[in-house]
Simulated assay, not measured.
Amino acid sequence: MNIWILSSGLLGVFTTLVHVFAGQVDPVRPFLKSELEDIPKATLLVCWHLVSVTLIVSSLMLVYVGWYGFDSLYLPAQLVGGLYISFVLVFVVVGWYFFGSKGFVKLPQWMLLLPIGLLAIYGAI
């Protein structure tokens, strides 16, 4: 068992649940009620759910690797950790672009994504 990677995966599962359930209330429902054309609206909704799939699959992979401690899967765990760090960078850059330093508060998702990435990378070193 690798507690660092396992913790990363469990936090990822929690983050997925927050994304799927809380995300429906805050950004998704108002977005779907907007006056945006149907094609861009459908495309953005697909992107939302692609993120949902990415979050759950990567989180379950980290749980699996962490639970069984397979050394041979540490490189993929590091790559998933890097993916989450990349997600953090996207949130920081987009948040800064739209809100300046307030972006850290207005788009707080980076706070859940950062520890997932760091724990996965640390556990796989």
Rank of each mutant, 00 (worst) to 15 (best):
T43W: 13
V93L: 13
D38P: 09
K102L: 09
G66F: 07
D26L: 14
L114Q: 06
W4N: 11
Y97L: 13
I125S: 12
L118H: 05
V53T: 14
V18W: 12
G95L: 01
I116K: 06
V63P: 02
S72N: 11
V57Q: 10
G95I: 06
G117V: 01
L89V: 02
W4R: 07
E35Y: 06
P115Q: 00
G81Y: 00
E37I: 02
G69R: 04
Q78N: 11
G12I: 02
G12Y: 01
I121C: 07
P76M: 04
Q24H: 12
S101A: 09
P30M: 07
F98W: 14
G82R: 04
L11F: 04
F14H: 05
W96N: 05
F98A: 11
G23C: 01
V51T: 13
I39T: 12
I3T: 14
H49Y: 15
G82W: 05
V80T: 03
S7Y: 00
L17A: 12
K106T: 11
L6F: 11
G103T: 11
S34F: 12
G82P: 09
S34L: 10
L55F: 15
S72A: 00
Y97P: 00
L50Y: 15
S86Y: 09
V18C: 11
P30A: 08
G103C: 10
V57I: 14
W4Y: 14
A77G: 01
S58D: 11
G117Q: 05
G82H: 04
L62F: 10
P40L: 03
V105Q: 12
T15I: 09
G117F: 01
S8V: 08
A120P: 00
L17P: 00
V53A: 13
S8R: 03
L60R: 05
A42C: 10
V88P: 01
Y122N: 09
P40K: 08
L119R: 04
G82I: 01
L44S: 12
Q24S: 00
T15N: 09
L113P: 04
L107W: 13
H19A: 10
F91N: 08
